[in-house]
Design a protein around this nucleic acid. Structure first.
Length: 559
RNA sequence: GACCCCAUCGUCUAGUCAGGUCUAGGACAUCAGGUUUUCAUCCUGGGAACAGGGGUUCGAAUCCCCUUGGGGUCGCCA
């Protein structure tokens, strides 16, 4: 088999939801392989399921791919990507093309019409299962007399078209990852290639499109492995050249279950059960009827919006599954891309961290791993941390700012650009994600009056324990704060360090921690001088005074 | 149940195709110390794997077979 001169790969999602990490990885491998081979990467939207496809979802796919930095040479036009001579790239716009090829198969007898109803077939399958044998369509329609078929078609009787699978020889397909995969004759059934609604099935559309779009390499998840023999026989019947297949193993959750959108639903169910909630929380906007239906039946899933509202009211984080989930959670696209590439592929040796350019230079099909991989969030997080730490300060400020503009605009509204800069930089060294600074720094943008001091252990330790107590020190240092000349980190540091030198044997923590707790309402904040700098003099003093005023309650709670 | 795929530390993997350099390397996680004004980071060190059984061979993580385990598919979804 001679290698085709120009490599053409494609990613062909069905727009029925968001791009999840498994799909993203397939797209990444297709893209990297095309780039490596100086070929073309195409994007095709497989929207032949009228019931489930939506325009919004295909838009989301494009957005997610774009964010990851995966560009496509041909496909839907979007922000400079796409276009091309072999379109249209939405299958729903290619129906006439499929019909043409469908007719050649029908005329040659390689395909035939079948009139069984879905109910009849379901019953036959049920029976086969009960008798513990593999179900295969019995080809009953082949015995129909041609005149009858003609008459039924003429009267508009609903029917599908099935492909007559040749069953003399084994079907052998070559896979770049798995090697030779062989299916014995007689195991494939005559699968449907045109549905009763006139739309081609996935199998047929894929084969026709891949041929017409000149696709040379099909890189996809192993859940498709069983489909490839079907595609191979169709390609043979239509006189098409078979592409090179490369089936990549699947991605799983740490517990071994398949990583899927359903995980969010499962997670919410578990939380609700744990908290023993009888009725839906009002803020979630779920009707009691929907709530009941959802809890009663595990196969019922909440709408995405409802699920997100419920998670917010329960104050829990839904597990990240889709590319967009990771984006919202503050992961960097280049990190997700790096991690995804490493899930099922490696450049060899000890090299782990690399960028898209490296991938495009080194990616190869023969280094794809055959065994399934579990998605390790901890490792992804560690990579994200590394990437943030090795970023320049300016880069971090810019990216955090862009992230805030999209997901946390309140931080930009509440701070001046200078304050935001200090906020960003003081958080950089311990941020694992772009979301971390905002999660740990809520207190920065909350009104002074809403700061409260829960009777938690660290709070008590910082304010109440010891002699003198933290509150005593806070009271003593208050005038020093009020007297600081220019309110910025260096001046604050000079003043407070000097005071600590004189009053706490130079132990800055003894005074820093009470101040921290007073202004933040908890034991965690950026370095104390930066924290006060960002807050400003007024907010700092107001919060300190409020904390001091709460002295008796705090001491009372402590005993 | 039928068909197909897979099998190295807890996890992702290097090594396997061309058997010896592997007392099996790296990363994440974990454990123990250390640095640090909190949290986090950071530094040093430790433990941790060739699923089991048969072959082939002077020699097997590497080749073959079986067993076991895991997974995928079995739709007028894609």
């Amino acid at each position: 088999m001679s290698e085709p001169a120009i490599v053409r790969t494609r990613f062909a999602p069905s727009p029925t939801g968001h791009l999840h990490v498994g799909g993203a990885r397939s797209a990444l491998f297709c893209w990297a392989f095309a780039r490596r081979s100086a070929g073309k990467f195409l994007l095709r939207i497989e929207d032949t399921d009228q019931k489930r496809s939506s325009d919004a979802a295909s838009e989301g796919f494009l957005e997610d791919l774009g964010w990851l930095g995966i560009d496509w040479d041909e496909g839907p036009e979007w922000k400079g990507n796409g276009g091309g001579e072999t379109g249209p790239y939405y299958q729903s716009h290619r129906l006439d093309v499929y019909e043409q090829y469908m007719n050649t198969l029908l005329e040659s007898g390689a395909a035939y019409r079948a009139f069984e109803t879905p109910e009849e077939l379901q019953e036959a399958r049920r029976l086969a299962r009960k008798e513990k044998r593999a179900y295969r369509y019995d080809r009953a329609a082949l015995d129909l007399d041609p005149e009858t078929v003609k008459a039924w078609v003429a009267e508009g009787r609903p029917h599908v078209v099935r492909f007559k699978v040749p069953d003399e020889d084994p079907i052998v397909i070559q896979d770049a990852v798995l090697g030779e995969v062989c299916v014995e004759p007689g195991t494939l059934e005559d699968f449907v290639i045109r549905k009763a609604d006139g739309f081609p099935t996935y199998h047929f559309a894929v084969v026709v499109d891949d041929e017409l779009m000149g696709v040379t390499h099909v890189i996809r998840g192993q859940e498709h492995l069983a489909n490839s023999p079907k595609h191979a026989v169709l390609q043979d019947a239509l006189g098409f050249q078979r592409p090179v297949w490369a089936h990549v193993s699947l991605i799983f959750n740490p517990d071994g279950s398949k990583m899927s959108k359903r995980d969010k639903d499962k997670f919410l169910r578990a939380t609700v059960r744990e908290r023993d909630m009888g009725s839906p929380p009002a803020e979630a906007g779920i009707s009691p009827a929907d709530w009941e239906a959802w809890l009663a039946d595990k196969t019922v899933q909440l709408e995405t919006d409802a699920a997100e509202r419920l998670a917010r009211t329960l104050d829990v984080q839904l597990p990240a599954i889709n590319v967009d989930d990771f984006r919202r959670a503050g992961y960097l696209p280049e990190v997700l891309l790096n991690y995804l590439a490493l899930l099922g592929w490696s450049p060899g040796g000890d090299c782990e961290q690399f960028d898209a350019a490296f991938l495009c230079e080194h990616f190869s099909l023969d280094r794809i791993v055959k065994s399934p991989a579990k998605f390790d969030r901890a490792k992804l997080l560690a990579f994200n941390l590394d990437a943030i730490q090795s970023m320049s300060e300016e880069m971090f400020v810019d990216r955090l700012q862009a992230f805030c503009a999209r997901y946390e605009p309140r931080f930009l509204e509440a701070m001046s650009p200078e304050q935001f800069r200090v906020f960003a930089l003081s958080n950089k060294e311990r941020s694992k994600t772009l979301l971390d600074p905002m999660q740990s720094g809520r207190f920065f943008i909350e009104p002074d009056e809403s700061i409260a001091w829960p009777a938690s252990k660290p709070v008590r330790k910082a304010l109440c324990k010891g002699t003198p107590s933290g509150l005593d020190r806070l009271e003593a240092v208050r005038p020093v704060l009020a007297d600081v000349g220019d309110w910025d980190a260096p001046h604050l540091e000079a003043a407070i360090t000097a005071w600590a030198e004189a009053n706490c044997e130079g132990n800055l923590g003894k005074v820093a921690q009470p101040i921290r707790v007073a202004v933040a309402g908890g034991p965690v904040s950026p370095p104390i001088f930066d924290t006060l700098d960002i807050l400003g003099r007024d907010a700092t003093l107001t919060r300190v005074d409020r904390c001091l005023a709460a002295r008796s309650e705090l001491m009372g709670a402590a005993t």
